[in-house]
């Protein structure tokens, strides 16, 4: 099947805030729908912004580091506190049924397929 399920695209306003980091993700599909797992270290549930409409899924998170006063940077491999990535959804997915879970900085999203497009097992009777 070569149907395109989710499409990644530049987030609205991405050019204006180029400091956002792009989270690493895993995306897989099974009979029920699409699952997306994103690494968002530092992001608490209150700092997560998920926006979904018919066509677009935007994942945005702000890491809350509570840095101590007077901290001088010695070495930085992560140079932003904002994570952002967005995906386009295709029509057979049901954005109203999205479930999201955020634990230890890992977001797990499940986007179900509409009931009418889920595969049905067809019994073959031997006559």
């Amino acid at each position: 099947m070569s149907e395109r399920k989710t499409t990644e695209k530049a987030a609205p306003g991405a050019a204006a805030s180029e400091t956002a980091l792009r989270p690493n993700v895993e995306v897989y599909e099974d009979a029920d729908g699409i699952t997306l797992i994103a690494d968002l270290p530092g992001v608490a549930p209150g700092g997560l912004n998920l926006q979904v409409d018919k066509e677009t899924l935007l994942i945005e998170g702000n890491a809350d580091l509570a840095l101590p006063e007077g901290l001088q940077p010695l070495h930085a491999e992560v140079r932003s506190t904002t994570w952002r990535r967005s995906f386009a959804l295709s029509g057979e997915l049901d954005p109203d049924g999205i479930e999201a879970r955020l634990k230890d900085g890992v977001l797990r999203l499940h986007i179900p397929k509409r009931a009418e497009v889920r595969p049905r097992r067809i019994e073959v009777r031997v006559t």
């Binding site: 690494d39 007077g70 901290l71 010695l74 070495h75």
Partner: peptide, 16 residues
Amino acid sequence: NIGATDDAVHVYVYAP
């Protein structure tokens, strides 16, 4: 990421 204050060194490991 690593940073320092006058009395401590802070190491932040991004391992979700």
